[in-house]
Design a protein around this nucleic acid. Structure first.
Length: 321
DNA sequence: TACCAGGGTTGAA
DNA sequence: TTCAACCATGGT
C-alpha cells in the first residue's frame, strides 16, 4: 500500500518519464543540472557499481530493479536540464517493463522528484547554505535506492576514510556480487542479502572488514533475507523518529548510520547525521573556525534548516568531497 | 610516526 | 543518562 506522499511521488515519475524505446528521457521537477550530478558521481576512481566516462559527460550502469537487469547509459539532455537514458541491451528494446524499472531506478537515484526551489528559498537567507546553492546550483542528492546496498555502504564506511571505504566496497562487490562483461568493461551488481546471509565472519574479514563490521553486515543481511527488514516497511512508518528507532535497534546501526540511510535511501528530508565528521569539517572550513563545531552547535545551526536537513547536509558534504 | 577517518558497542560511574 | 575505553586499519 502506498501512502499519500508515495502516491504523489509515483505520479510525478510517470509525468516525468518519456519512454522512446531504445532511448528515453526523464524530466525533473524544478532546478536541475546533469553536469552537477556527474561531477559528484565521478569523485572516486574506485567506484565499482557504475562507470563515469573520462570526458565526464555520461555514466554507465548495470541496473538491477524490479526483477530486471538492464545496462543503461545515462547522459544529459538539452541544456543540461534533463536526464537521457540509452538502453544498451537489445533485449530491453522490446521490454517496456524493464525500461520502466530502470527509469524508475534512475529517477530515484538522482532524486528527480524533489522540487529544489523550496530548498533554495530556505537557503536564500542562510549564511552557510546561500552561497552553496549558487555554487552547486541544480545538484540533487544522489542516492542509493537499494536498502541493502545503502546499509552496507554506511556500515563499511563507519570510522574510516572515504578512500578506504571505496576499497572495501569494491572487494565486497567483486567477491559476492554478480558481474557481466561488455565492451571491455565488467559491470557489477551489489551482492544480495540472501548471498551475504549465507556467509560467516571468516568469509568477510579477509576483505579487511573488521570482525565487528562483518557481524553487522551479516546481521543486516539476515534480517533482509528473511523479510524482517524491508524498505517498504520503513517507508510505511509514520515519522522519521519511528524509522530511526527501527534501524538503531539493529546491532551496528547507530544514529549516524540510521540518518545516513534515511537520507540517501529512504529520502526523508529531515534526515540529519549530526555527529558526522565530514559535516563538522565542512562547517569548520566554511566559517573559518579553529576547531570543529560540536554536535550541539551543529544542531543549533540546523534548527533553521527544518525539513531540509538532508539537502543541507548533502550540499555541505559537496564542499569537501 | 602520529593522528585522523562520512561510528558503534560496552560497561562503569 | 552520560562518558571513556576500545575496536582495528588504511591514508596522509
Amino acid at each position: 500500500m502506498m501512502n499519500e506522499a508515495q502516491l504523489a511521488a509515483e505520479l510525478a515519475f510517470q509525468e516525468g518519464w518519456k519512454d522512446g524505446g531504445h532511448e528515453g528521457e526523464l524530466v525533473p521537477r524544478g532546478p536541475f543540472r546533469f553536469s552537477a550530478a556527474l561531477a559528484y558521481m565521478g569523485r572516486s576512481e574506485n567506484e565499482c557499481l557504475f562507470y563515469v566516462d573520462q570526458d565526464q559527460d555520461r555514466v554507465c550502469k548495470w541496473i538491477e530493479a524490479g526483477g530486471e537487469r538492464v545496462l543503461v547509459e545515462i547522459f544529459g539532455g538539452p541544456e543540461d536540464r534533463t536526464v537521457r537514458l540509452r538502453f544498451l541491451d537489445e533485449a530491453a528494446h522490446g521490454n517496456p517493463q524493464a525500461r520502466l524499472a530502470a527509469a524508475r531506478y534512475v529517477w530515484e537515484w538522482f532524486d528527480l522528484g524533489t522540487d529544489l526551489d523550496a530548498f533554495y528559498r530556505l537557503a536564500e537567507s542562510d549564511l552557510l547554505l546561500g552561497p552553496l546553492t549558487q555554487r552547486f546550483y541544480g545538484l540533487r542528492c544522489i542516492g542509493i535506492p537499494d536498502l541493502f546496498e545503502a546499509l552496507c555502504w554506511a556500515i563499511l564506511g563507519q570510522q574510516i576514510n572515504l578512500a578506504f571505504a571505496y576499497t572495501l566496497k569494491r572487494r565486497f562487490v567483486e567477491s559476492y556480487g554478480a558481474s557481466m562483461a561488455r565492451d571491455g568493461r565488467t559491470y557489477w551488481t551489489f551482492p544480495t542479502p540472501e548471498t551475504i546471509a549465507g556467509l560467516s565472519v571468516a568469509d568477510l574479514t579477509p576483505l579487511q572488514l573488521t570482525s565487528k563490521k562483518a557481524e553487522y553486515v551479516l546481521e543486516t543481511a539476515a534480517r533482509m533475507a528473511d523479510g524482517r527488514l524491508t524498505k517498504e516497511h520503513l517507508l510505511s512508518l509514520a515519522n522519521a523518529q519511528a524509522v530511526e528507532r527501527e534501524l538503531t535497534a539493529i546491532r551496528g546501526i547507530g544514529p549516524w548510520t540510521a540518518h545516513y540511510v534515511m537520507m540517501r535511501c529512504l529520502r526523508l528530508p529531515s534526515a540529519f547525521p549530526a555527529g558526522d565528521v565530514g559535516l563538522q569539517n565542512a562547517v569548520k572550513h566554511l566559517f573559518g573556525m579553529d576547531s570543529k563545531p560540536t554536535p550541539v552547535e551543529l544542531q543549533r545551526l540546523a534548527a533553521g534548516w527544518s525539513g531540509f536537513e538532508a539537502y543541507a547536509t548533502f550540499y555541505l558534504w559537496r564542499v569537501l568531497y
